[in-house]
Structure formats: C-alpha cells, structure tokens
C-alpha cells in the first residue's frame, strides 16, 4: 500500500543528533528531513546540503537595481527634463551615487527575502507538516519517509538503536498541517 508515511525519531541533544544521523546514513537509510529548534552546527555538512544559491540571486537583483537607478536618473536629467540645479552638469555622476547605492541594496534585500520564502515554501497561509510541536522548543527530530509499511519495523529498530528517545509512526492528516 503506497502512502506518504513517516517515521520520526526524537532526540534531546544536538551532538547526539549528529552522531545518530551519521549512523543512520551508514546503514543506508535516506533521511527525509531533520527538524531542529535552532540551526545546528555541522548539520549542513552531515546532511550534505548544497550551498544556497540565494547570494547569487541577491547579487543579480542588486546589480539590476543599481543599473536601473543610475540609468533612470541619467535619463531624467539628460533627456526627459534637464534642469540646471546649482550649476551642476546634467549628467552629474557623483550626485547619482546615493540613490544608486540605496536601490542596489533595496533590490538585493527584497529579492533575497522573497527568494528565500518561495524556495522554502514559506509564507502567510503556507501549509507545512509539523511532525512534533516540540521541535521549535528543545527537541530534535529525524524524519524518515516510507512508501510502504513493510520497511517500518526495520527503521523503528534503527532509530531506537542510534539513541532516539521516542520513535513514532506518523500519518499526516489535515489537522497536522499548520498555516
């Protein structure tokens, strides 16, 4: 029977969590997700998470913002309506710099945040599965996804052997998702 079921193993300590993950990986079990109350040092490496591409997005968006701002100011003052402000040249590069800089930062920051939210599937009204409400408090959770129930005994054993305090079988229903 195919369904999205999960088996979760709960830990109370981050160092033990990392050790457990390594052992589980050695046994060849694929980890679906790890839930922690704070970013655990070394978790990225042990889960072999790829470095985020957000910085690149930020750079590109910032560059667009800066170029747009500089070009716009130049266009306004050289083509659209050139006005003599205190004898400054129409194409006055030094005075264009502040706005150009601010727009660069603004575009970069907004793109980073929007990119982060979209990529992570977060936002007002987003529905993500919360396996255990204690993971935002002091508990660390390893989540293994199983596609058919025959694997569950094996995984239960493995999780218990690596030191999980509680091992549970979770079938997410509507009430488990939180906005």
């Amino acid at each position: 029977m195919k369904s999205n079921n999960y088996i979760t193993g709960l830990f109370w300590d981050d160092t033990e969590l990392i050790k457990a993950i390594k052992e589980i990986q050695d046994k060849g079990i694929a980890i679906f997700d790890v839930r922690t109350p704070f970013p655990v040092h070394g978790l990225d490496d042990v889960l072999k998470l790829k470095r985020s591409r957000l910085p690149r997005l930020g750079f590109v968006a910032g560059a667009i913002g800066g170029i747009l701002a500089f070009w716009f100011q130049s266009w306004v003052f050289t083509t659209s309506w050139p006005l003599n402000f205190g004898g400054k040249p129409f194409f006055s590069v030094p005075s264009f710099i502040p706005v150009t800089f601010e727009m660069t930062v603004l575009f970069a920051a907004i793109s980073l945040v929007v990119g982060f939210l979209i990529k992570s599937g977060l936002g007002p009204g987003a529905e993500n599965i919360i396996f255990d409400e204690r993971t935002t408090d002091d508990a660390f959770l390893i989540v293994v996804k199983i596609t058919d129930n025959s694997q569950s005994d094996n995984i239960f054993e493995v999780l218990t052997s690596v030191g999980a305090s509680e091992v549970k079988h979770v079938e997410p229903t509507k009430t488990d998702t939180h906005a």
Partner: peptide
C-alpha cells in the same frame, strides 16, 4: 505570522545564508 516555519534543516541552512 509564522509563515509555516517547520525548523527543517534545509530551511535553517538557507535562513543562515540569507
């Protein structure tokens, strides 16, 4: 207000980078 935050390791990683 929580935007559906789960504490997933992937999200934390991206969060730190951001």
């Amino acid at each position: 207000l929580s935007f559906g935050w789960t504490g997933s390791a992937r999200h934390w990683s991206r969060h730190e980078s951001m």
